[in-house]
Write a protein that binds this DNA or RNA. Sequence first.
DNA 1: CCGCTACATGTCAATAGCGACATGTCGAGT
DNA 2: ACTCGACATGTCGCTATTGACATGTAGCGG
Lengths: 177, 177
Amino acid sequence: MSLPHALLGLLSVHPRSGYELTKAFERDLGRYAWQAGHTSIYPELNRMAEAGLVEVTHEGARGARTYDVTPAGREELRTWLLSPPKQAKVRNEQVLRMFLLSALEPADALVVLHRIAEATDQGVTELRKVREDHGEAPMTGAEGFGQLAAEFGLRQYAAVGEWARWAIDRLEREQGA
Amino acid sequence: MSLPHALLGLLSVHPRSGYELTKAFERDLGRYAWQAGHTSIYPELNRMAEAGLVEVTHEGARGARTYDVTPAGREELRTWLLSPPKQAKVRNEQVLRMFLLSALEPADALVVLHRIAEATDQGVTELRKVREDHGEAPMTGAEGFGQLAAEFGLRQYAAVGEWARWAIDRLEREQGA
DNA sequence: CCGCTACATGTCAATAGCGACATGTCGAGT
DNA sequence: ACTCGACATGTCGCTATTGACATGTAGCGG
């Protein structure tokens, strides 16, 4: 049940509506950390409002409701972030695919590995651009989030790309031998 | 629905029982790629056996049943692995925590970042040992899996560790200024 | 031979999450 | 005036997943 914490985190950076939260999940958060659609988000916001973790601070056009974190919500988020990181739950289909590669014939595996290497290169290029746009904004607060995310994604892509190239190298050497 | 593919992948490396599959998930697979408990695995194996993707090749002591992949299962796995990687679903609580760090006071964030850096160092050390034990075994087949996993985890830990140190550096510089 | 641990498989109720469907509004362009 | 795309929130049924509970066996040390 990490969704409520993700929502608290986003709202604590700055208040927004369920719709805007959904967009945030489609952008950074959902790509690397935790994906969720609006069908999970709206009901969860209502639950959290009932529990007193968030509150509606403004009602705009088209029924839009802006949520903000309450002191109780802020406390809950802080406690969660500072609590000892137990056994984490991981679900990542891409990574699973990589792990299962050794079940393929070497020739097939090479095809997939090359595809991975290309995809990560593209990711690195994209994020380098994002990084340059952000520049030297402060780490905490509204801008910090995007920066942390971009920098993390960048290193993540780079690492996967290097791994893929390592695997390609290993495989090709074996094939040749 | 990646669980059946994960099971096909593991079994295609070498046949084993549901119990041994469960152990495999607790070890590498569940740590980085896809976690699942025995309560998902056993029913899934039965479904897959009914669907003709796997079959019981041996019955051992204590009711243990060894499963192996059928040709149909092998075909299914190959198709899945070679099919275009669509939009991936990601769920990783640790990464989520990292993303939400910017919602904390800088002092609190630094505490967590230092903890992350330490944890990744430990992970790197562990996996370096695993890598040395494996040595130069071939990439595909029974040994390949562990190697791919270890190498991937190693690079993953290293990348996260570097990211944490980058963030610490940034934060401390801001605090000082 | 007793007790403990690891082996080995399962059910079932509750919860989480997704895809399909549903509804309505505001603003821009034609 | 009209249409269309983005804004904005929701329900509901189906499937996936988890946690608690249940059951029994083989082997080992004392």
